[in-house]
Simulated assay, not measured.
Amino acid sequence: MDLGLGGKRVLITGASQGIGEGIAEVFAEEGAVLHLTARSADKLEAIAARLRAAHGADVTIHPLDLTGGDAPARLADAVGDVDILINNAGVIPGGDLFSTDDASWRANWDLKVFGYINMCRLYYARMKAAGGGVIINDIGNAGERYDRDYIAGTTGNASLMAFTRALGGRSLEDNIRVVGVNPGPVDTSRIYKLLRRRAVDWYGDESRWEELLNTYPLRRPAKVREIADLMAFLASERSGYTTGAIFTVDGGIASRASII
């Protein structure tokens, strides 16, 4: 399916691995002009080289830590205007209220929660001045399925869900669409770190993490492509009336309910 994304300027944060790398792959296939940012210059360069070789992609990398300060503004100045912003940077660690210390909580919220907000503030203004655009926030299903054993993440994601709905509710008045995607477990290194953390919390034994896979739909996490393809569709004009909405891709986990 040609989504009409050829030549669209796309900025993807957290693009050096996992879902971010998968998003870059899909948009490269669609012929978009890519700006990729993350902390690791080596990883970004390797991904850019692969996408150029495989798809003839136009890729520019911007190695940068978006945690706090003026980093988002410096990134925006370096990249310039874009048609599509995909906020994906940030990994909030697992753990309950007592195993997640204050410093870790604040540092990870600075990157993901406030990082998304700051990037939206910068690029919403730019998109409005330019006549429109699309912002996609990669959030996570913990924002709607409250989890005491992932308390920093569940609270942060719920905040970003509210932010996305609030910003997107009237954004079409500025010809801007703002949407969120809530992945559940995804086949990246991150989910296996969370499973090990959960195995410690539940069983006192990190090595039992594989037992937790049996709780997932189809006994597997989502494939990265199952998330990235949705984002490409949401960024396209085929989804031109969609804003202020959150799309959950978790095999039904967030919708499970039982009286027992």
Rank of each mutant, 00 (worst) to 15 (best):
Gly18Cys: 11
Leu212Gln: 10
Leu230Trp: 01
Gly7Val: 04
Asp83Cys: 03
Asp205Met: 12
Gly169Val: 01
Gly80Tyr: 12
Gly95Lys: 07
Asn88Arg: 00
Leu85Gln: 04
Tyr146Gln: 12
Val224Cys: 06
Ala228His: 09
Gly131Leu: 07
Ser16Arg: 11
Gly251His: 02
Glu29Cys: 12
Thr242Glu: 02
Asp149Cys: 11
Arg126Asn: 09
Ala15Trp: 08
Ala228Cys: 07
Gly180Val: 11
Leu194Gln: 13
Ala235Asn: 01
Asp174Phe: 08
Arg145Lys: 15
Asn157His: 15
Phe247Asn: 12
Asp250Ser: 07
Leu111Trp: 01
Gly18Lys: 01
Phe233Tyr: 15
Val113Ile: 15
Tyr123Ala: 04
Asp250Val: 02
Ala158Cys: 04
Val82Asn: 01
Met1Leu: 10
Arg121Pro: 04
Glu210Ser: 15
Leu75Tyr: 03
Leu64Cys: 13
Ala15Val: 00
Gly20Ile: 13
Tyr241Ala: 08
Arg121Gln: 14
Ala24Glu: 15
Arg208Ile: 01
Leu66Arg: 01
Val134Pro: 03
Val200Cys: 00
Ile19His: 01
His55Thr: 05
Val134Glu: 06
Leu195Gln: 14
Leu234Trp: 06
Ile135Val: 15
Ala28Asp: 03
Ile135Thr: 08
His35Arg: 10
Asp81Gly: 09
Asp138Pro: 00
Val26Lys: 13
Asn108Glu: 10
Arg52Thr: 13
Glu237Thr: 14
Val178Trp: 10
Ile136Val: 12
Pro72Lys: 05
Lys193Met: 08
Thr13Gly: 09
Leu11Glu: 10
Ile19Tyr: 08
Ala152Trp: 03
Asp70Asn: 08
Gly94Ile: 02
Ala158Met: 12
Ala24Ile: 15
Arg121Ala: 12
Ala107Thr: 05
Gly180Arg: 10
Gln17Asn: 13
Thr155Glu: 01
Gly68Leu: 05
Asn182Trp: 05
Arg197Tyr: 02
Ala89Glu: 03
Asn118His: 14
Ala54Tyr: 12
Ala254Thr: 13
Thr154Gln: 10
Val79Gln: 09
Gly6Arg: 14
Gly143Thr: 07
Ser189Trp: 07
Gly22Ile: 05
